Computed example of a mutant assay.
Amino acid sequence: MRFKKQKRHRRTVRFFSVNFGFRQPFKVLCDGTFVHHLLHNDLTPADKALSNCLSAPVKLFTTSCVLAELKKLGAAQSASYQAARKLAVARCDHEKKVSADACIEDVVGENNFEHFFVATQDADLRKKLQKVPNVPLIFGLRNALFLEQESKFQRDFVKSSEEKRLHLTEKEYKALEKRITSVSANADDEYLVDDEGLGCHNPGLQPHNTRNYSGKERDVKDRVRFKRKRAKGPNPLSVKKKKSRENPNRASGKEVKADDGNAESKRKRKRSRKGKTLAGTDVAV
């Protein structure tokens, strides 16, 4: 249950931060009823209890009218008065002191420029402030603090403001029309006749520099021309040297010649003459 409550509080804080620009540390404007509730339920120190509720650092404020109202209540609220005096005092500009709820309504105003979180136990005051678009409300229940979810009025206000941002205002629309007429008049005067003297139709708005000219005819270069990178040869220091190859024909020729000589030498045989006889004699030598 506690985890769901913290998740709901973070979502509400994100809603006001994104749509209305609330920033940390958050300013919390406390009235007398809320200070009394903190003391009665031992939710002290107050800044720590509120920072745990909002999951962010906080600064506590009150008004001089709230202090005057607590002082009038006498001894019954003396502890609350002493605790409220320790808080920072927000400027309310009331010469004559008014009630605390009226003072807080005036400080918040219609736009809540100071981005105050209002902490109060007054149910009627919370209902009134729910009609102000950017006022988050804090209240206490026993020993726990709660941040009210954004009201339906606040959600509708954010939705309508987002839709308005998507459309042009009357002032912007008139300025756009004036610009269109001036540009179209200049374009008609400049491009009414082409180079051959023939009439040309200028449909709508055309920028001044959108005529179809080739790049050579323009005096000013439209594009920056970069030098095209071309493929380069390999690094000569990283290339191996080519090995010189011997002529295979020469080597083979030598071998052939050598082989032929061997063959011839082998073919020549020395014959023994033991069996030969001298001519004219029958005796063998």
Score class of each variant (00 low, 15 high):
residue 52 N to Y: 10
residue 217 E to Q: 04
residue 96 K to W: 02
residue 108 V to G: 00
residue 268 K to G: 05
residue 96 K to P: 02
residue 56 A to Q: 04
residue 270 K to Y: 14
residue 12 T to L: 03
residue 18 V to Q: 13
residue 283 V to F: 14
residue 173 Y to E: 14
residue 52 N to Q: 13
residue 87 L to T: 04
residue 212 N to T: 08
residue 145 L to H: 02
residue 173 Y to F: 14
residue 18 V to T: 14
residue 47 D to M: 01
residue 42 D to P: 00
residue 42 D to H: 09
residue 38 L to Y: 02
residue 161 S to L: 06
residue 208 H to F: 12
residue 263 A to G: 07
residue 270 K to S: 11
residue 258 A to I: 05
residue 96 K to Q: 15
residue 3 F to Y: 11
residue 114 E to C: 00
residue 30 C to M: 15
residue 219 D to G: 06
residue 32 G to S: 15
residue 128 K to D: 07
residue 175 A to N: 14
residue 154 Q to C: 13
residue 284 A to N: 08
residue 130 Q to V: 03
residue 239 V to P: 10
residue 150 E to Q: 12
residue 252 S to V: 07
residue 74 G to F: 02
residue 145 L to G: 01
residue 238 S to N: 04
residue 227 K to F: 11
residue 179 R to K: 15
residue 69 E to P: 05
residue 75 A to I: 11
residue 147 L to R: 10
residue 96 K to G: 11
residue 69 E to N: 12
residue 78 S to L: 09
residue 165 R to L: 07
residue 164 K to T: 06
residue 146 F to R: 08
residue 98 V to K: 07
residue 182 S to G: 12
residue 272 S to I: 05
residue 71 K to L: 11
residue 133 P to N: 00
residue 167 H to W: 03
residue 234 P to I: 03
residue 119 A to H: 10
residue 178 K to I: 06
residue 52 N to E: 15
residue 279 A to G: 14
residue 199 G to A: 11
residue 43 L to T: 00
residue 124 D to M: 03
residue 276 K to Q: 04
residue 166 L to A: 04
residue 134 N to Q: 05
residue 99 S to N: 14
residue 79 A to P: 05
residue 225 R to F: 15
residue 20 F to N: 00
residue 149 Q to N: 13
residue 119 A to K: 12
residue 195 D to P: 13
residue 68 A to M: 11
residue 139 F to T: 05
residue 62 T to S: 15
residue 163 E to S: 03
residue 114 E to N: 03
residue 147 L to H: 10
residue 26 F to H: 02
